[in-house]
Amino acid sequence: MEPIIELRDVSTVYEGEKRPAIRDVNLAFEGGEFAYVIGPNAAGKTTLLETINGLLPIFKGHISVLNLDVQKYGREVRCQIGYVPQDFMVDPGEPYAALDVVLMGRYGKIGVIGMPSKEDKEKAIEAMRLLEIEDLANKPIGKLSGGQQQKVMIARAIAKEPKILLLDEPFSNLDPESRGKISKLIAQISSEHNLTTIIVTHDLRQMAESCSRAIVMNSGRIIADCEPREALALIEKWNFSDFWRHNG
């Protein structure tokens, strides 16, 4: 089977930096795969996601997503990827309603010429319903709590009806109960629609329960790509669990 996402010898260097933030990464994901990426702060997890969706230019190597060269067809690729950025918080005065923000997820797909249709709006509301935030639809997003804003961003990614989900610590502002619920919801949506899903997380317990593949990163490299249980054992052994203890 052709991989949906394929990175070959990819290094990404931020502008003005000398050291690559991720280096010589080789990775492939098949359609419908569900993987977690773990690793200490500054390991390169966020950089990996933004390299896959082409927000960051690569320094060397090759990436293809959905059989398209990301360097050339970044925009087409991004129309098919639901991305939830890390620590997304807006100013309290931001003049946008939560529903506006969820609907934005579909704008790339709608294209420059089109206007959001009734169907687009329904998809956005449906996504909010799945996350149990439909009653916040008309509230200004800046007035929502961090956790609620995070749910809005997840709804934005889901409303897009993507083929791929890239989620960067999507549960960091949620309480444990919501974490469990939403991580189940995402797993369910992924399997229903056969989405390829990559989740960056600190929450090792969550990972062990809900996925089949764990990618461990450190200092810009992939140091393990295995079963979650194996990954946990490795982390124990290498004893750098204290790197992310604060997020336990």
Binding site: L55, E76, R78, I81, Y83, P85, G108, K160
Partner: peptide
Amino acid sequence: KMAEADGV
């Protein structure tokens, strides 16, 4: 950045 991530 999010607009760009959505393909705009």
